[in-house]
Nucleic acid binder design. Structure first.
Length: 879
RNA sequence: GGGCGGAUAGCUCAGUUGGCAGAGCACCUGGAUCACAACCAGGGGGUCACAGGUUCAAGUCCUGUUCCGCCCACCA
């Protein structure tokens, strides 16, 4: 056993002095590496942060949750593994480096693909690891020897292997479709990467003249500039209004192009005019119509959103300028019938917020329906479970309506698509094919096409590594619900497809943190507190504890930095309790003391019982992912029970002249319970708990590997809890009488207690503990039933407590207080009696509930009687 | 258009099989008592959004309403 050094616990607690000290030791001792243990290992992985990212408060919440579970499981004897890493984040990273180049007056095209990628790698090496370095400071128990990057060599091999395998199964195809195109990032995006924002716009009604006629057919549109690419007008075949026009020809205004009027069932006769302009190259619906009817596709915009040569007079204009000009031209020529206000959901690039353009191009897609089916099954059967459970519905709804996934990106930074072309030949291969003349597909893969492999790619897949066998599936995924589609659902699909098993058994969704106004924390809003500053000011422990303590299960959390005081002050409280205990420990080696050599007092039995309760509570709440409840249970036990009551009751027993056995018992129990608190606290506050634990008697190298406490059956003691709660009420009553009568704590008071034999015996036994707690000078047991003539009084569980302070108490105030108390008692009593008069209640409520009500009435009556007598006796005194 | 969540003390939120409404912060009173003023002791403060219903009993279960918030959706 190592002895604690009293010098180490200085006041007040300074996290900055302590927190730097333990991480290196934990790492050095391999605490964070898996330690073989029987049973299934507990495995989690980081949702890999973007290499461009900086640490946010949201990351810290996720890390806190993960680390709490990990450290708890590790202490509980499980083999644990936490794999850290980062995501190459294709668009985000390329944007950052391109921006840097732009500031230097260069573009990626000046550099060329190879040297641009060189620049990105250099940038990545320099800044890419920042978040992970910051997370060490946060104390996360990650196995850094297994750190991964989604673009490292092994991971890349997994990604390309995946592509090949899905291609061979005909689950990947190349096709020419309308995709979401960002004219600023110059790449296609998946549907999930587009944010729709309801925007006030207009619905314009246009007149298209019929060929060889003075008549028009009118169409409605929200995007008039696309009319330049119209190749038809469509109506519903059942729409009698237009039946005679189907088959005729309209003349496209401004372009003078003759276009057919066709019938298609997808046209809604009730919307607009019932006739729709068809722009196959710029609208996904129109594209489908065009395919069914063999219409030509005319692209009128280039990849920058600029009108091209097919746009006639409007060539060279930006798309929004073109809209204005087209409207002007239509209006001038009499083709604009009307415009009405209309709200349009406008798609924006989730990366740069540019308005998305539907764009016709060749892209690679994953056929999702066959992958979704098993993922749906897995959730339905409970092979993967969600916490909170309601997310299952969201997950299922998405998978049941899934659409094919556009995975090609017109970027350079990422996994280059392993497809090679030579003339009309095409082959899929991770390596350059043998022979001359092969060129590789220019595009890279969507970042999420690598992330979805994370739970097994980090373990060495596609090789059948030992890690893969032992640590797949992972146990738990902790993440925010905003990436349930991007990532969670896709991981389940990938896991089932490539490993035949779900990637993790449980998914826990953390709260989304918002500022005081309820806005999401974001860099662009500038409302995000700096996590590093928070750690500097409050300590990593405090941040961890507070976030966990505050986070409601499955609800968003309004966060204010000041709340971190909760954790900071709590750390200080535990620290000071430890100082007290340490100072009074004496020389004896407490870890070697036998419990049989101790004589437990009521207070000892009580606190051990409460500890057993706390252990049960914390553990149960951890098991059910009610982290805030778990934190709350420790907080309450440590502060409101151990510090506020037990330590205060133990103080006199530590005195030099105290009974040696009792002193030793008090020392042992106070140490033992503190040790239990530290163990329970360690997952939440690893640094301060380790620091204290090391300074106290302990066995083992580190608290991180000490055993999670078990609730000892023999420690539960209902009788002790009952008696101490009486004691507490008694003390509180005396304190209350003192306060009401303005008797300062400096003045010791005499107290008289009147009551039944058993209770007086109990008070007598506890007198030595009660007296200092309530600042009592003399505690008189009125066994003969006499009562002080003039006194402030209160009733506690049937006993009367008197503060005989003739001349000192404020008689009028005391009378008022008693009157108020009487009113309260009468109201309560009436409520209870009403219940007991109710025959239905007596007949139908559970017997114990009725019995409880009866006892309550008896107690209230007794109390009322005593309060009345106090009033009478006070009334006899002239005040 | 569909789906989900929320409404409890001045604020932020707990309230896990229905059985006496809780915590932290803020507020008021008192306090340098030898672990802690980052503290201690005491206190005030609630029509549990609204309206119905089920039940002996509802913050809790059911229905509806009103406000917030979020997600999904190609009616141009």
């Amino acid at each position: 056993m190592e002895r604690g050094n009293p010098e180490t616990l200085q006041q007040p607690y300074d996290p900055n002095r302590v927190e730097g000290r333990w991480y290196a030791l934990w790492e050095e001792r391999g605490v964070f590496r898996p330690r073989p243990a029987p049973g299934e290992a507990f495995v989690v992985s980081i949702p890999p942060p973007n290499v461009t990212g900086s640490l946010t408060i949201g990351h810290l919440l996720g890390e806190s949750v993960r680390d709490v579970v990990l450290r708890w499981q590790r202490m509980d004897g499980r083999e644990t593994l936490y794999v850290p890493g980062t995501d190459h984040a294709g668009i985000a990273t390329q944007n950052v480096v391109e921006k840097k180049l732009r500031e230097e007056g260069r573009s990626r095209h000046d550099l060329g693909r190879e040297s641009f990628l060189g620049e990105v790698w250099t940038w990545k090496e320099q800044y890419g690891g920042l978040i992970l370095r910051q997370l060490r400071r946060f104390g996360i128990s990650a196995d850094w020897t297994r750190e991964r990057f989604t673009l490292d060599a092994g991971y890349s091999r997994a990604v390309l292997h995946t592509f090949q395998r899905l291609y061979e199964k005909n689950l990947i195809y190349r096709g020419r479709y309308i995709v979401n195109w960002c004219p600023r990032c110059l790449t296609a995006l998946s549907d999930e990467e587009v944010d729709h924002v309801d925007t006030a716009g207009s619905l314009w009604t246009l007149r298209y003249p019929l060929k060889d006629s003075k008549q028009f057919i009118t169409v409605a549109t929200t995007r008039p500039e696309t009319m330049l690419g119209d190749t038809a007008v469509a109506v519903n075949p059942k729409d009698r209004r237009y039946a005679r026009l189907v088959g005729r020809t309209a003349v496209l205004p401004l372009m003078r192009r003759e276009i057919p009027i066709i019938a298609d069932e997808t046209v809604d006769p009730r919307f607009g005019t019932g006739a729709v302009k068809v722009t196959p190259a710029h609208d996904p619906n129109d594209f489908l119509i065009a395919q069914r009817h063999g219409l030509p596709e005319i692209v009128v915009m280039d990849e920058h959103g600029t009108m091209n040569d097919s746009a006639g007079d409007f060539r060279g204009l930006d798309r929004f300028e073109a809209r204005r000009r087209v409207l002007d031209a239509l209006r001038d020529a009499g083709y604009l019938e009307k415009s009405e206000p209309y709200t349009v959901p406008v798609g924006h690039c989730s990366r740069c917020d540019t308005v998305i353009e539907p764009y016709l191009s060749w892209q690679w897609f994953v056929r999702m329906a066959p992958l979704a089916a098993p993922a749906i099954e897995a959730a339905r059967r409970g092979q993967v479970k969600f916490y909170p459970a309601r997310w299952k519905k969201v997950y299922l709804n998405w998978l049941e309506n899934i659409r094919d996934w556009c995975i090609s990106r017109q970027l350079w930074w990422g996994h280059r698509i392993p497809v090679w072309y030579r003339g009309s030949e095409m082959t899929v291969s991770a390596e350059r094919p043998a022979g001359e003349g092969w060129t590789q597909d220019e595009d890279v893969l969507d970042t999420w096409f690598s992330s979805w492999l994370w739970p097994f790619a980090i373990l060495g897949w596609p090789d059948e590594t030992e890690d893969l066998k032992r640590y797949y599936p992972n146990s738990l995924m902790v993440t925010a619900a905003d990436i349930i589609f991007f990532w969670v659902a896709r991981m389940v699909m990938a896991g089932l497809e490539f490993r035949g098993e779900v990637p993790f058994r449980h998914v826990y969704f953390t709260s989304i943190l918002r500022d005081a106004e309820g806005r999401k924390f974001s860099k662009s809003l500038g409302n995000s507190p700096d996590p590093i500053e928070m750690m500097d000011r409050y300590g990593a422990d405090a941040v961890r504890f507070t976030l966990i303590y505050l986070t409601p299960t499955g609800q968003d959390l309004l966060f204010d930095e000041k709340r971190l005081e909760t954790g900071k002050f709590f750390a200080n409280k535990v620290w000071n309790a430890a100082r007290l205990v340490q100072m009074r420990l004496g020389d004896e080696d407490l870890a070697k003391v036998r419990e049989s050599a101790l004589v437990l007092t009521l207070a000892d039995r009580w606190i051990l019982s409460r500890l057993a309760n706390a252990v049960k509570d914390v553990t149960r709440n951890l098991k059910t992912y009610r982290f805030n409840e778990a934190a709350n249970a420790i907080y309450q036990f440590a502060w409101a029970e151990y510090c506020d009551w037990y330590l205060e009751m133990a103080k006199p027993r530590w005195a030099e002249d105290a009974d040696p056995v009792d002193r030793r018992t008090a020392r042992w129990v106070s140490w033992k319970v503190l040790d239990g608190i530290l163990r329970l606290l360690h997952p939440f506050m690893p640094f301060v708990s380790e620091e204290i634990w090391q300074a106290l008697p302990h066995e083992g190298e580190t608290l991180a590997l000490a055993a999670w406490p078990r609730a000892k059956r023999s420690w539960f003691d209902a009788e002790a809890e009952r008696q101490v709660s009486y004691l507490q009420e008694l003390v509180v009553a005396v304190r209350n009488l003192r306060a009401e009568n303005k008797v300062g704590p400096g003045r010791l008071v005499p107290v008289v207690v009147r009551g039944g034999e058993a209770q007086l015996d109990l008070v007598e036994r506890l007198a030595d503990q009660i007296k200092p707690l309530a600042r009592i000078e003399s505690l008189t047991l009125a066994r003969d039933g006499t009562r002080p003539r003039v006194a402030a009084s209160a009733v506690v569980q049937g006993t009367e407590v008197f503060l005989p302070l003739e001349g000192l108490i404020d008689l009028e105030a005391e009378r008022q207080r008693l009157a108020k108390e009487t009113d309260r008692l009468l109201a309560d009593l009436e409520g209870c009696r009403r219940k007991l008069r109710n025959q239905d209640f007596l007949a139908k409520a559970r017997a114990e509930v009725v019995e409880r009500e009866r006892q309550r009435v008896a107690q209230l009556e007794e109390t009322l009687e005593k309060v009345k007598r106090a009033q009478e006796s006070l009334g006899a005194v002239r005040g």
